[in-house]
Write a protein that binds this DNA or RNA. Structure first.
Length: 513
RNA sequence: GAUUUCGUAGCUCAGUCGGCUAGAGCACUUGACUUUUAAUCAAGGGGUCCUGGGUUCGAAUCCCAGCGGAAUCACCA
C-alpha cells in the first residue's frame, strides 16, 4: 500500500514530535545498541528490600506504556519482553539546573506513549509499595508514530482481581495487527510461548530416540499422501504445474526406503479448502516414520510422547484442562475399533454391511450422502456424525475399512480392515497413524481404486504416484507412520478454541484499502 | 457455501419512535502538581456514522445492493 493514509490528529502530532526531537539534536532512531542487564519480571521477582545493593545499577529497555506526570516527577511503566515495571523519573535527577529540556520538553512532551526507551538507575520500593526503577539516565531508542490502543488495568481492592478497561479484543484487528495485539494484550503471549515449547519438546523427544529431522519438498508435481484439494502453482523455468503439498507422507516413506530407521518432519501443509475456527489454509503437521515398527508400537509411542510434552509445558502434570474437561495425556489411552465405536454410540453393527445397507443406515440417522461415497466414506460419515464428538479423553479408534485408507497395510487378521488408528481428544482428531503399506503391488491396486473414486466425482481422491511405487518396488521395511496436527494439539494444550489464536498470522481476506 | 448478526473519534462504546451543530470515558493539546498507579484538577481540539443507491421535508437510525468482521452449520486436519 503506497498511498498515504489520512493521518489522524494524533499521528500528525507524533510526526511533529519527531521533527522537534531532531531539531534538538536527538536521533529518534539511534543506531547504537543499548545494552540491558535486567528484565522487568526478574527485578520484580528478585528484589528484596533488605538487600538493595544488588540493584544499584540496572539497565532496561522497552516501550513506555503508561505515563503519570506529577509535576517535576513522572511515573511511567516500561514494558519489555518479560512484563512491566514502574519507572520513577525526577527532573532533578536527569537534568541540570540551567537546562531542564530533557525533562520539561523531551520527556513531558516529545516522548509519547508506546515509544521505545532505555533507562538506567536503581531499584527501590515506593510508598505505595511498588517495586520501581529510580531513573538516573533516560534515552529514546525508537519513536512510535501511531498510537497504540490504550488498555488500562487496575487491581480491584475488594476482590483482588485485575480488571481491564477498554480491552483491545476485536478478533479482526487482533489478527490483522498481531504486533499490536501482543503488545497490549500480554495474556495472549503465553499461548504462543507454549506453542513454541510444545514443538521444541516434541523435537527433543524424537531426537532423544535417535530419529532424524528432515525436510521434504513443499512444491510437488503430484499431490499425494492425503485426501484434500491442493493449491496449484507454476514453475516458469521448468514450465511445469506444481502443487503446494497437502502432505509429505510419500516423501518420508521414500526416505525409509533409502535406509533411515526413523525420520520426522515438522512443517507446513497447504489445503485449498474451507476456513473456519479449526482450519487455516496452511497448517503445521508433524509426520514421523519408524522402520521395523507397527501401529501397536506407535500407540505406545504416542502415549509416551504426549505425556512428555504435557508434562514439559505444565510443570510436570500431564492433566491439562480444556473447557470443563480435565484431559489426561498420560497413557494408556482407551482403544476402540471403528466398528465397535459405531456400535457403542448408535447400537448399529455396520461391520458386515455393504454399500446399499450403509446408505439405508445413513438415511435412518439423517446423515447426508452423495453418489461419490464408497463404503469406507459412508462408514466415516456415520462415525463423524455420531461417534467423534463423544471422544473427549484421549482415545484411539483403530482398524479402519480398507477403502478409507489407501496407504495403510491390510490388517494382519481382520479382513477388509487396515492397521490404522486415529487419536481423538476433545471430540476431534489430533493424530493419524498406520502400519504403512509396503507391498508395492497392493499399493498400486489401492491407487487404482482411488482413480475409480475420482472418476465417481471424489475431488479428494489420491492420484497415482509412479515414482513412489518404484521406490516401494525396491523394498521398504515394515514401518509405522504417524501424523499429528500441531495447531490442534496446541489449541488443546493451551485452552484455545480457534486455530486463529494459536497462529501468529492466520489467513485473512485482503484488507480493503 | 448457507443462516443470523454487527460496522459511530486513535481505543472501548452510547445514540430511544427517523427530528437542534452526533455524544461519553480513555487517548491527544495547553496549564497546575517532587512517591503516583484506571493519578488528580482546569480548559481545549478531534468524525467519510463501512461504501453506493433509495424512501423522506429530514437518515447514524428505515429499505436495497456491495465490502468487511463475528457466531452457528456443512466439508477438510
Amino acid at each position: 500500500m503506497h498511498h498515504l493514509h489520512h493521518l489522524s490528529e494524533q499521528e500528525i502530532i507524533r510526526r511533529e514530535h519527531l521533527q522537534e526531537l531532531r531539531n534538538l539534536g536527538i536521533d529518534p532512531y539511534p543506531a547504537a545498541a543499548f545494552n540491558v542487564n535486567a528484565t522487568a519480571e526478574a527485578i520484580k521477582q528478585e528484589f528484596v528490600d533488605e538487600a538493595p545493593e544488588a540493584f544499584q545499577d540496572v539497565a532496561l529497555a522497552g516501550r513506555l506504556m503508561v505515563v503519570r506526570e506529577k509535576g517535576k516527577v513522572t511515573f511511567g511503566e516500561l514494558q519489555d519482553s518479560s512484563g512491566r515495571i514502574q519507572l520513577y523519573i525526577s527532573r532533578s535527577d536527569i537534568t541540570t539546573e540551567d537546562n531542564t529540556d530533557l525533562y520539561d520538553v523531551v520527556l513531558k512532551r516529545l516522548i509519547d506513549f508506546g515509544d521505545y526507551i532505555g533507562v538506567r538507575g536503581f531499584v527501590f520500593r515506593t510508598r505505595m509499595g511498588e517495586i520501581t526503577i529510580h531513573v538516573k539516565e533516560l534515552v529514546l531508542l525508537s519513536k512510535s508514530l501511531r498510537p497504540l490502543p490504550v488498555v488500562k488495568t487496575r487491581v480491584n481492592e475488594a476482590s483482588g482481581e485485575t480488571e481491564t478497561y477498554d480491552a483491545f479484543l476485536d478478533p479482526e484487528q487482533r489478527h490483522r495487527q498481531r504486533y499490536v495485539d501482543l503488545t497490549v494484550n500480554p495474556q495472549f503471549r503465553a499461548t504462543f510461548m507454549t506453542r513454541s515449547r510444545i514443538i521444541s519438546a516434541m523435537r527433543r523427544f524424537f531426537d532423544g530416540k535417535g530419529w532424524m529431522e528432515v525436510e521434504t519438498p513443499i512444491l510437488q508435481p503430484i499431490h499425494g499422501g492425503a485426501a484434500a484439494r491442493p493449491f496449484k502453482t507454476h514453475h516458469n523455468t521448468l514450465d511445469m504445474e506444481l502443487y503446494m503439498r497437502i502432505a509429505n507422507e510419500l516423501y518420508l516413506k521414500r526416505l525409509i526406503v533409502a535406509g533411515f530407521d526413523g525420520v520426522y518432519e515438522i512443517g507446513k501443509m497447504f489445503r485449498n479448502e474451507g476456513m473456519d475456527r479449526t482450519h487455516n489454509p496452511e497448517f503445521t503437521s508433524m509426520e514421523i516414520y519408524v522402520a521395523y515398527k507397527d501401529y501397536d508400537w506407535m500407540m505406545n509411542m504416542v502415549e509416551e510422547c504426549l505425556e512428555y510434552i504435557a508434562c514439559e509445558i505444565n510443570q510436570g502434570n500431564p492433566v491439562i484442562a480444556f473447557d470443563q474437561h480435565e484431559i489426561n495425556y498420560a497413557g494408556p489411552y482407551r482403544r476402540l475399533s471403528m466398528y465397535d465405536s459405531i456400535k457403542e454410540y448408535t447400537g448399529i453393527d455396520v461391520s458386515e454391511m455393504d454399500e446399499a445397507q450403509l446408505l439405508e443406515v445413513c438415511k435412518k440417522l439423517h446423515i447426508e450422502t452423495d453418489k461419490s461415497m464408497g463404503r469406507g466414506k459412508l462408514i466415516d460419515e456415520i462415525f463423524g456424525a455420531k461417534v467423534e464428538k463423544n471422544l473427549i479423553q484421549p482415545t484411539y479408534i483403530i482398524d479402519y475399512p480398507v477403502e478409507m485408507s489407501p496407504l495403510a497395510k491390510k490388517h494382519r487378521s481382520k479382513a477388509g480392515l487396515v492397521e490404522r488408528f486415529e487419536l481423538f481428544v476433545n471430540g476431534k482428531e489430533v493424530a493419524n497413524a498406520y502400519s504403512e503399506l509396503n507391498d508395492p503391488i497392493d499399493q498400486r491396486e489401492r491407487f487404482e481404486e482411488q482413480l475409480l473414486l475420482a472418476a465417481r466425482g471424489d475431488a479428494e481422491a489420491m492420484a497415482m504416484d509412479e515414482d513412489f511405487l518404484r521406490a516401494l518396488e525396491y523394498g521398504m521395511p515394515p514401518t509405522s507412520g504417524l501424523g499429528i496436527g500441531i495447531d490442534r494439539l496446541t489449541m488443546y494444550m493451551t485452552g484455545q478454541h480457534t486455530i486463529q489464536e494459536v497462529l501468529f498470522f492466520p489467513q485473512m481476506r485482503a484488507e480493503k484499502s
